[in-house]
């Protein structure tokens, strides 16, 4: 990477002809129809609001935006989303890396184990949400049962309806389903690392721990960054588990940004305010993702 940037010459893998337009046109049409037009419509929408009496959208200027700044529900849901984001991303990354390191072997059987990992990912998130809703049920849920056995919760505190535990309960489903995704990406990275430096490290006397910190982690940096980026963007719009498991409750304990904007839009028919909320979510994701890309030195 730095060789290319140092010399200022950008080398391309493919030769693109002098007339790229015919090849770009289909993509441009798709983008305009499904991404750019909805985006601008959303922006337009955020300056309007649905008026129930006239049953039409009316121009309201900056009202939605000023309402947003003073909306404690919004700030609350933002901080809940951030907490969800940080905890889920950290755990999925760390656990994912541990599992990936364990599965990075050529012995027979490991291929099957790697294939099994994809099973979590093919289940629809809403179904996973229902599974965990049942498993965390205080009467007959297996997770509640186990936690009660260890005295961590008692029968009087149902996980999903106690304000201090509900978010953790939702995170459980999230982490169970998405850690394998991290494992798959990290494993693909690990399996493609060169073996020679590892041989040199053995000769140099590095312990497994030193090898991981000084060799694997730096060599995996870009793969990790990409995994964090993809998963991170996804985490910001968490909706399914919350919708199925808690509906944002108890109280506002699991109100995430996307759940809040969904509710404003479709339950309260505040189309303009809902659009404003989702725009803000988009802006936050864009800003955070770009800062991350800059600092992680990911090159597209």
């Amino acid at each position: 990477m730095s060789a290319a940037t140092n010399s200022g010459i950008k080398r391309s893998r493919r030769h693109i002809g002098d007339h790229p337009l015919p090849w770009l046109l289909p993509l441009i049409l798709l983008l305009v129809t499904f991404t750019i037009y909805p985006f601008f419509y959303n922006v337009w929408l955020s300056f309007h609001e649905f008026a129930p009496l006239s049953r039409s959208l009316e121009y309201v200027g900056l009202q939605n935006w000023s309402q947003l700044l003073g909306d404690t529900r919004f700030w609350q849901s933002l901080s809940i989303t951030l907490a969800y984001f940080v905890v889920a991303l950290t755990l999925e990354l760390v656990i994912g890396m541990c599992i990936a390191l364990l599965l990075d072997a050529d012995e027979p059987g490991f291929g099957l184990l790697r294939a099994l990992l994809t099973m979590n990912l093919v289940i629809p998130p809403a179904i996973v949400g229902y599974m965990y809703l049942l498993m965390e049920d205080p009467q007959f849920g297996v997770i509640s049962f186990v936690l009660q056995m260890f005295g961590l919760v008692d029968t009087s505190t149902p996980i999903l309806s106690s304000p201090s535990l509900a978010l953790a309960g939702v995170l459980l489903a999230e982490i169970w389903q998405w850690t394998p995704f991290m494992v798959l990406i990290l494993l693909a990275g690990l399996r493609s690392l060169p073996t020679e430096p590892y041989e040199a490290a053995m000769i140099d006397g590095a312990s497994a721990f030193q090898t991981f910190w000084r060799l694997t982690l730096p060599m995996m940096w870009k793969v990790i960054a990409i995994a964090v980026l993809i998963r991170g963007i996804d985490l910001f719009r968490v909706f399914d588990y919350v919708f199925v498991m808690t509906s944002g409750g108890p109280g506002t304990a699991t109100y995430t940004l996307s759940y809040y904007s969904w509710q404003q839009t479709f339950s309260f028919i505040k189309w303009g305010y809902g659009a404003t909320l989702s725009l803000v979510t988009l802006i936050i994701v864009l800003v955070v993702a770009n800062i991350f890309v800059k600092f992680a030195k990911v090159r597209w």
């Binding site: 060169p194 020679e196 430096p197 041989e199 040199a200 490290a201 053995m202 000769i203 140099d204 006397g205 590095a206 312990s207 000084r214 060799l215 730096p218 060599m219 940096w221």
Partner: peptide, 19 residues
């Protein structure tokens, strides 16, 4: 290998790419 008290120059160098 780390306990054999050996230094080696590899035919393919085997340098650490990130160092």
């Amino acid at each position: 290998p780390r306990d054999r008290d050996i230094a080696m120059v590899f035919q393919n160098y085997a340098l650490y790419p990130t160092m």
